[in-house]
Simulated assay, not measured.
Amino acid sequence: MPKPIRDGAGPRHVAIIMDGNGRWAQRRGRPRLFGHHAGAKRVREIVEACPDLGVGYVTIFAFSTENWKRTQSEVAGLMSLFRRYITKEARSLLGENVRVRFIGDRVRLDSKLVTLMDELEQLTAGCTGVNLTIAINYGGRDEVARATKRLAEDVAAGRLDPASVDEETLPKYLDTCVLPDPDLVIRTSGEARISNFLLWQSAYAEYEFVDTLWPDFSADEFGSLVSAYGSRERRYGGVKA
């Protein structure tokens, strides 16, 4: 089990690019969806580890705006997995005091999935433990574009003075407007890129790129990365006195 982190030493918000499900399955001679099912089970272990580590917010990248390019069978399988995961885990998440939110553009998602997402958000709205945010049909550029459109509409309607727009204004229009920015971003599977994930929010986040494929990413490894964060010096553009 991961070791507890002393108050204030670890990241408050950890964002995770859960990569490697398909390769994990293929190395075992199984279809890619087998890996996605294994990866979904890993989410629970990571969320359960968060309280002892002092992590109050965890955001996971479940399906990107670019993932629609995958085969029709894989996309359909993922959507079915999301529906099953929400239905199966809803009561457990509520019982563990986990508040769930979804970010991303819901327009392209099927109505049954959107209804389940809405219901889970409402069911856990009063929870005060870990805040779990799931990014589905999410892309950082798409999010900024949608936020900018809403901002422009407010300017055009006279609800917002264009002279008052600054870097504090746009975040109020982002999908993550009620969340703190991530302190630590983890990507599994050995890839060293951010893949259009939380582009605005991660401007000052620390990054960890690990070789472990997501279905093998344990709570112990998660705890080690959270612990290592505490040893980093974060100056936000300044210098140490």
Rank of each mutant, 00 (worst) to 15 (best):
K3T: 14
I5G: 07
I5D: 07
D7V: 11
G10P: 09
G10R: 03
P11V: 04
R12W: 08
H13P: 07
I17K: 06
R23S: 04
W24G: 05
Q26G: 06
L33Q: 00
G39W: 01
K41P: 02
V43G: 04
E45M: 06
E48L: 12
E48N: 12
L53S: 01
V55L: 00
T65Q: 08
E66L: 12
W68D: 13
K69W: 06
T71Y: 10
Q72T: 13
E74H: 12
V75G: 10
A76Y: 11
G77N: 07
S80T: 14
F82Q: 01
R83N: 12
R84T: 14
E89R: 13
E96W: 07
E96N: 15
R99T: 08
D105F: 07
D110F: 08
M117R: 01
D118A: 13
Q122F: 00
A125Q: 13
G126F: 09
T128Y: 04
T128S: 15
V130S: 05
N131Q: 15
A135K: 00
N137Q: 13
N137H: 13
Y138H: 10
D142T: 15
A145Y: 04
R146V: 06
A147H: 03
K149C: 12
L151T: 11
L151W: 10
L151N: 10
A152C: 14
A152V: 12
D154Q: 14
V155K: 09
V155P: 11
V155H: 11
A156V: 09
A157N: 13
G158M: 11
G158H: 08
P162A: 11
V165D: 01
E167M: 05
P171T: 01
K172I: 00
D175M: 02
C177D: 14
C177H: 12
D181V: 08
R187N: 10
R187Y: 10
S189Q: 02
S189R: 02
R193N: 12
R193C: 11
I194P: 02
N196S: 12
L199Y: 06
W200R: 00
W200H: 14
S202L: 09
E206M: 12
F209V: 05
F209H: 06
D211T: 08
T212A: 09
T212Y: 08
F217H: 06
F217E: 01
E221C: 04
F222E: 05
S227K: 07
S227Y: 02
A228I: 00
E233C: 09
E233V: 15
Y236R: 09
Y236A: 12
